[in-house]
């Protein structure tokens, strides 16, 4: 389980970082999205992987970590997903505006000579 998920995180990170270093804004936005999947999964994994553990409390009283999933990374990732969406939206619009103003979709706002 852990091996598979960490391989997945690694692949998402590698694809994301590679795209982050590319010259076109669209590549960068896709790269950032991939990277945010990786980071979300990574944070989520910090609570350790549990299959079939109840995430919702039995309404009898206090819960404990042995019988339930870890809620803290989940709460963090929930926030991260929404903020990641906001970031993607903002970046997309900056990308479009930059393309509108400069006429190119290069990340520098101008074409490099050999590219």
């Amino acid at each position: 389980m852990e091996l598979i998920l960490s391989a997945g995180i690694g692949a998402l990170t590698a694809s994301g970082v590679y795209l982050l270093l590319r010259p076109r804004t669209y590549q960068v936005i896709i790269g950032l999205s991939l990277l945010s999947y990786a980071v979300n999964l990574f944070i989520f994994g910090m609570g350790r992987l549990r299959v079939n553990a109840p995430p919702v409390l039995d309404p009898v009283g206090a819960g404990d970590l042995a019988s339930y999933t870890d809620p803290v990374p989940q709460a963090l990732v929930l926030t991260a997903i929404v903020i990641g969406f906001a970031m993607t939206a903002l970046f997309l619009v900056v990308l479009l505006a930059s393309r509108g103003f400069t006429g190119t979709d290069h990340v520098d706002g101008r074409e490099q000579r050999h590219d």
């Binding site: 852990e2 091996l3 998920l5 960490s6 391989a7 995180i9 690694g10 692949a11 998402l12 990170t13 590698a14 694809s15 970082v17 590679y18 270093l21 990786a38 999964l41 990574f42 994994g45």
Partner: peptide, 14 residues
């Protein structure tokens, strides 16, 4: 760089 970053993340996560 990408392979290093991905491999590193994988290692730490695992």
């Amino acid at each position: 760089l990408a392979i290093l970053a991905g491999g590193g993340m994988m290692l730490i996560a695992y």
